[in-house]
């Protein structure tokens, strides 16, 4: 059975096509003013590339901030539910997912049976989010994909004192003018981001043993390395574009309730809590 998952984020939208549990194809595009039209267009393109007719897609589930914009979706599910489902599929040992998107930072805890246990989000403050990293990179005129490489060269990271992402941007500009090097500032930006994630992790109780980083910020390897060092835990990279994980989870959930083996004798099926 083929199903589709839509994840409409604040900065980008992602669509995944799944057959049983296999990811057939996924797409990630930046959101623009004609969001609804762009989503429809990207979906059509994705189906065409795979040579599938839209009636072959049996069920569509949407998630993300703009989930209500997907009119073909059967229903909407929360991001933590989708993340937990995808994590269970990708690596059964994962117990914590850290999803850093453009604005939201989510901590998703998964219990030993792969169910969503707990989740937390950074609202109402954008400090430490992808937008913060983007503002910093823009202020320094550094391409987003070069952030880690440049930050890795720093020997004396600059400590950012502003908590607010908006003020941190001004602080960065004044530090450039004061002659602080680009790599020291970027290393400081990554430190600030990791510090924020660490604080959020602390709020959700005990930190698990195997963590994974997803969302757009996971494309910056420096974040994962620093996070692993600060937490002293394994933070793995998933075998999938980290931005596609929630959409993949949504498509998996559209496949129907998961049959999980608990005792080895009886199959128990239960819907993943939303």
């Amino acid at each position: 059975m083929i199903t589709a998952g839509f994840d409409i984020g604040t900065r980008a939208f992602k669509i995944c096509l799944v057959e049983d549990t296999r990811l057939m194809a996924g797409v990630c595009r930046l959101a623009d003013r004609n969001l609804e039209q762009s989503i429809r267009h990207a979906y059509k393109q994705l189906l065409e590339d795979q040579g599938i007719h839209k009636r072959h897609v049996k069920k569509v589930i949407a998630t993300g901030y703009g989930a209500d914009l997907v009119d073909i979706a059967a229903y909407e599910l929360s991001e933590p539910a989708c993340l937990a489902r995808a994590a269970y599929q990708l690596d059964r040992e994962l117990d914590t997912l850290i999803d850093i998107g453009a604005l939201f930072i989510r901590i998703v805890k998964i219990d030993e049976n792969g169910y969503l246990e707990d989740s937390d989000v950074n609202e109402p403050c954008a400090a430490g989010s992808g937008k913060f990293l983007e503002l910093a990179a823009e202020a320094l005129a550094v391409p987003f994909e070069d952030i880690s490489a440049i930050a890795a060269r720093s020997l004396t990271p600059y400590t950012i004192t502003s908590t607010c992402a908006v003020f941190a941007e001004s602080e960065i500009i004044s530090q450039i003018n004061a002659g602080v090097s680009c790599e020291d500032i970027l290393a400081g930006v990554l430190d600030a981001l990791v510090f924020k994630v660490q604080a959020l992790l602390g709020k959700t109780g005990a930190i698990g043993s195997k963590l994974a980083l997803t969302g757009g910020v996971a494309n910056v390897p420096g974040v994962r390395v620093k996070l692993a060092a600060v937490l002293g835990k394994d933070v793995i990279a998933l075998p999938l574009d980290p931005q596609l994980v929630p959409a993949y989870g949504a498509a998996l959930l559209a496949q129907g309730p998961l049959r999980r083996r608990f005792s080895g004798e009886t199959d128990v099926s239960r819907a993943t809590p939303a």
Partner: peptide, 17 residues
């Protein structure tokens, strides 16, 4: 409804959409 300027920016963009 948001308090953070960056979240508000997103909300404003949603209104524009």
């Amino acid at each position: 409804t948001n308090k953070c300027s960056i979240f508000m920016e997103m909300e404003v963009l949603q209104h524009l959409y």
